[in-house]
Simulated scan of single mutants.
Amino acid sequence: MKKATSFSTKGSSTSVGPLKIQRMLPNRYAGQVGPFVFLDYVAPAIKNEITKKGMGAHPHRGIATLTYILQGEVEHFDSAGNGGKIFSGGAQWMKAGNGIIHDENFNYDSQTDSKYIQGFQFWINLPAKNKAEKPEHIAIQANEIPQIALEDESGWLKIIVGNYEGLSSKIPNYAEQFLYHVQLKAGKQFLLEIADKIEVAAFLPTAGAQLNNAEFQKGEFIEFDKNAGEIELRNTFGQPIDIILFGGEAYTEPIVAEGPFVMNTKEEIIGAYHDFYAGKYGEINLTA
């Protein structure tokens, strides 16, 4: 049985430095999809619009951030002394844990001289027991991301987060979660089985697609119901298309979000701000 669509939206537009952002989550219909509480889509920008000054250092607590770059490169800096640079097709995961300050510098891909930058930033909510842990950082290049060929030469599926058919991402799982990048060739389809009570959404960054016999446009975010069922992706476009699928088990603990912090109580939010202003998150040292 095919899963029903709960809603679709094109989110809201904003800017972060020189980048044009489409904020897909949270939206007017939903605050989270499984453990995912935030999604910004970085629309394609040409290289002469990008600076090398970073996006602005800022704190986080209680979440893990995940940057997945389709085109371009992203360099990471944080107050725990971590650093790393990923290129087109790579991902960076940072567990903010009990508090960290970080910055990211988006630029064109120096390895390929690509003229564009395009990608995503997700926030993954941590269980309460993991919010007090020390920060961590993982940089994963494109060739380290598990990829599987789809049947009937239909395309491929990359496992950015979670597991699929025996393959696993390097990104830690604190609950059942997944983030897949599917590319479908023209005229092809792919069927994904979703278990009961698993929340799942799709995003169409490059072209429209048919999801469970309904047509959706480029730039749409689609969430499905929580019943067990199938999601059929069909490419009715004349060229290969990309589809982002993500979600997981529902986050059942209380969620209190304010600014860059996602905690379980208002008191914990107050504590997060207090510790930040007290300098307990440290500072980024670019000379180290």
Results as ranks from 00 to 15, higher is better:
residue 118 Q to T: 14
residue 135 P to K: 12
residue 182 V to C: 02
residue 164 Y to M: 05
residue 160 I to W: 09
residue 132 A to Y: 09
residue 175 A to D: 11
residue 131 K to P: 03
residue 146 P to L: 13
residue 125 N to I: 07
residue 130 N to V: 13
residue 187 G to F: 02
residue 192 L to K: 07
residue 120 F to R: 14
residue 167 L to K: 06
residue 196 D to I: 09
residue 138 I to V: 08
residue 118 Q to A: 12
residue 197 K to E: 15
residue 151 E to D: 15
residue 178 F to Q: 06
residue 190 F to Y: 15
residue 146 P to Q: 12
residue 130 N to D: 15
residue 169 S to D: 00
residue 155 G to T: 06
residue 130 N to S: 13
residue 162 G to Q: 00
residue 117 I to F: 15
residue 176 E to Q: 08
residue 151 E to M: 11
residue 133 E to G: 02
residue 186 A to T: 01
residue 158 K to C: 00
residue 114 S to L: 13
residue 128 A to E: 04
residue 183 Q to G: 02
residue 175 A to F: 09
residue 113 D to W: 11
residue 163 N to V: 03
residue 170 K to Q: 06
residue 129 K to N: 13
residue 194 I to M: 04
residue 188 K to I: 01
residue 160 I to D: 07
residue 164 Y to G: 00
residue 198 I to H: 03
residue 198 I to F: 03
residue 183 Q to P: 02
residue 170 K to E: 06
residue 172 P to I: 04
residue 161 V to Y: 00
residue 140 I to N: 13
residue 113 D to F: 12
residue 126 L to D: 05
residue 187 G to S: 07
residue 130 N to E: 15
residue 190 F to G: 04
residue 198 I to P: 13
residue 196 D to T: 14
residue 176 E to L: 07
residue 120 F to E: 11
residue 175 A to G: 08
residue 149 A to T: 01
residue 189 Q to Y: 07
residue 186 A to G: 06
residue 179 L to C: 05
residue 182 V to E: 03
residue 139 A to G: 15
residue 136 E to S: 15
residue 179 L to Q: 04
residue 157 L to R: 11
residue 153 E to P: 03
residue 139 A to T: 14
residue 136 E to C: 11
residue 134 K to R: 14
residue 115 K to M: 12
residue 152 D to C: 00
residue 173 N to L: 15
residue 141 Q to Y: 08
residue 187 G to V: 05
residue 131 K to V: 04
residue 174 Y to F: 15
residue 174 Y to Q: 09
residue 192 L to A: 10
residue 130 N to G: 05
residue 168 S to K: 08
residue 181 H to Y: 12
residue 180 Y to P: 01
residue 173 N to I: 12
residue 191 L to K: 14
residue 188 K to V: 03
residue 120 F to I: 14
residue 186 A to H: 05
residue 198 I to D: 05
residue 156 W to S: 09
residue 149 A to M: 00
residue 129 K to Y: 13
residue 197 K to S: 15
residue 115 K to R: 08
residue 184 L to W: 07
residue 186 A to V: 02
residue 145 I to D: 07
residue 174 Y to A: 05
residue 142 A to Q: 10
residue 147 Q to P: 00
residue 192 L to R: 06
residue 166 G to P: 14
residue 176 E to T: 08
residue 155 G to C: 10
residue 138 I to C: 07
residue 185 K to E: 06
residue 156 W to N: 07
residue 127 P to T: 08
residue 163 N to K: 10
residue 154 S to R: 01
residue 117 I to T: 12
residue 135 P to T: 14
residue 175 A to Y: 09
residue 182 V to R: 00
residue 178 F to S: 05
residue 120 F to G: 08
residue 194 I to G: 11
residue 134 K to F: 13
residue 127 P to M: 10
residue 153 E to N: 13
residue 124 I to A: 00
residue 121 Q to G: 06
residue 142 A to L: 10
residue 126 L to S: 01
residue 174 Y to N: 07
residue 136 E to R: 12
residue 167 L to R: 02
residue 175 A to I: 11
residue 149 A to L: 04
residue 149 A to D: 01
residue 141 Q to P: 00
residue 117 I to L: 15
